[in-house]
Structures are given as structure tokens and as C-alpha cells.
């Protein structure tokens, strides 16, 4: 009995740091964000006054906010489409043993383990208006004129494509590792039986492998969606929301409005605007994760 009580205390003691961490660094800021979003808090204000939904009504009148909302969806859906297709291909390529597989896996994981700010700065130079290595190659091949090279971050559509591609580059390793784990969990006798029955690669892949991996693919997609919806690093470093707000997303707009602009309440309202959607996504994620465990 005493041993069980001691074990219970030990368990609570070991769980406490994690709980404290979550409450202090996730729970408290989240509660503050909600409080700020219905208050009149500015960076320099003292005190707090409840203003109801005024901040939400105010941001909804802003064309910049409406644009950022649209761009957030475009950014997320675009990046996740690229990530999930590419991760599937990579996972298939990496599941079999081959010489140098460890090294290839290491290189593929690099974008995920390196700080995103470093990676984004690297891409900023790759896409730079003067020193872009891509443009240098295009000019050397006489495909474009020196003063007429593509401005990857200066055209609305190209800039959005650029931030989507860079974010996909960043998220790809994470999804690849998840899908690789799912792929290796499929019992080998199932595809072998399909091969004996005469099923080719494509038929096996689309009618056996992908259906069996659906729960784990969902987990990868949902994690990716949450990470992408809430990310501002790539946009902030590459375009700062430009040109003319065509890559502005909700997290970057929240930062510009709340921290640089000084209106913390409106910044908070922008940042929590997606919370209801993200809550539904998180609920789905947990539900599907449970199904994945069963698989």
C-alpha cells in the first residue's frame, strides 16, 4: 500500500515539471491572448477594460486582415499539398535499404533540425533581387536579361509561391519521418501477397499502402496544418508580408499590429481568430492519432 502511494507521489513529481511547463509557457500566454483580445490593452497601457468583441469587429473591417485570412489558408493548403505528396515519394524511396541511406536521411532531416530562421535567411539570399543564385544561373544560360530577372519576392504570385515552397522545404522532413514510420509498420506479408496475386507497384501503392497509411497521413497533415497556420517566420524573414500585403498571413499581421504597431489587443484578436478552427483540427488530430495507434 505504502509502495503504491510512494509510486503515486513519484509519478506526480515527475509529471509536475511537464505540467508546469505547459501551464507557464502555453496555458498562460493563451489565456492572456484571449483576455487581451476582448480588452483595450496597448503596449504602453496600464490597466484593463473589457471591450467585448470590438477588436474582432475592428479587424474584420480591415482589408489587410481579410487578405491575410485568405493568404493563411492559401499558404497552409498550398504548403501541405506539396509536403504530403513529396513526403510520400521520399518515404517510399527511403524505406528500402540502399548504400548511403543513412546519409540521405541525415540530409533530408537537416531543414527540420536547423533553426528555421537560419534556413529562411539562406532562402532570402537565394531569392534575393540582386544576388539570387537562381537568377545568376538563368542569366548565365541567357534565359533572362541581367536587369530583367524574375523578382521572386517582388511579384505577388511569385512571392506567395516562394514562401509556400520554402515552408514546404522546412516541413518536408517532419512529414517524411512520420510517413516513413507508418510505411515500416505495414506488415511485409500484405504487399508480398498482393505481388503474388499479380498487383503491380501502382495498384499496390494506391489500393493497399495508402489506405493502410491513411490514419498516419492524417496525423502528418494535421500537424503540418497547425504548424503552418501558426508560423510567421518564413513570411516575416522573406517578405514581411509584401509585396503590397500579398503574402501577409495572420501570425505576421498579428505581430506587426500588436508588437510593432503597439495595439496588443487587436494583435491578440488577429492571432486568436483561428483558434476555433485550430481547436477542431486538434480534436481531429487526437482522434485520428488514436486510430493510428490501433493500426
Amino acid at each position: 500500500m505504502g509502495l503504491r502511494r510512494d509510486a503515486g507521489r513519484l509519478g506526480a513529481a515527475m509529471f509536475a515539471p511537464a505540467l508546469l511547463y505547459i501551464v507557464a509557457l502555453v496555458g498562460t500566454p493563451l489565456v492572456l491572448a484571449f483576455l487581451y483580445s476582448v480588452g483595450n490593452v496597448k503596449v504602453g497601457s496600464v490597466g484593463y477594460e473589457f471591450v467585448g468583441l470590438d477588436n474582432f469587429i475592428s479587424v474584420l473591417q480591415s482589408p489587410t486582415f481579410r487578405g491575410a485570412l485568405l493568404h493563411s489558408f492559401l499558404f497552409t493548403v498550398g504548403a501541405q499539398l506539396i509536403v504530403i505528396i513529396s513526403a510520400n515519394i521520399l518515404a517510399l524511396a527511403l524505406v528500402d535499404r540502399f548504400r548511403g541511406r543513412g546519409l540521405v536521411r541525415f540530409f533530408i532531416l537537416l531543414p527540420w533540425v536547423a533553426p528555421i530562421s537560419l534556413g529562411a535567411i539562406g532562402w532570402k539570399w537565394i531569392l534575393d533581387s540582386i544576388y539570387s543564385v537562381i537568377n545568376w544561373v538563368l542569366v548565365q544560360l541567357h534565359l533572362v536579361e541581367p536587369f530583367d530577372a524574375p523578382m521572386w519576392l517582388g511579384e505577388g504570385a511569385l512571392a506567395m509561391l516562394s514562401v509556400i515552397m520554402v515552408h514546404a522545404w522546412r516541413m518536408l522532413p517532419f512529414s517524411t519521418v512520420i510517413l516513413l514510420a507508418g510505411l515500416t509498420a505495414i506488415p511485409k506479408d500484405i504487399p508480398e501477397a498482393a505481388a503474388v496475386d499479380g498487383a503491380g507497384f501502382w495498384r499496390t501503392h494506391f489500393q493497399i499502402t495508402i489506405p493502410m497509411m491513411t490514419p498516419i497521413i492524417n496525423v502528418a497533415v494535421l500537424f503540418g496544418v497547425v504548424f503552418t497556420f501558426t508560423d510567421m517566420t518564413v513570411v516575416y524573414i522573406l517578405t514581411r508580408g509584401g509585396p503590397y500585403n500579398s503574402t501577409q498571413v495572420l501570425p505576421s499581421l498579428a505581430f506587426f499590429t500588436g508588437i510593432l504597431g503597439g495595439d496588443l489587443a487587436e494583435g491578440a484578436a488577429i492571432s486568436v481568430f483561428l483558434v476555433p478552427i485550430l481547436v477542431v483540427i486538434a480534436w481531429l488530430m487526437l482522434r485520428l492519432a488514436r486510430r493510428a495507434e490501433v493500426v
Binding site: 509584401g242 503590397y244 500585403n245 506587426f256 503597439g262
Partner: peptide, 24 residues
């Protein structure tokens, strides 16, 4: 003023000029 500062930091003026320059 604080309002002028927020207009400045949310780039209202560059956005206005850029949309016209680009024909948006």
C-alpha cells in the same frame, strides 16, 4: 502619435503606393 506609429509600422503608405505602381 501612437496612431501615426501604427500606420507606419503596418506599412499602410507603402502598400498604397505599391498597389498603384503594380496596377492592382
Amino acid at each position: 502619435s501612437a496612431a501615426i506609429d501604427e500606420v507606419f509600422n503596418t506599412f499602410v503608405v507603402p502598400t498604397m503606393f505599391a498597389t498603384v505602381a503594380r496596377g492592382q
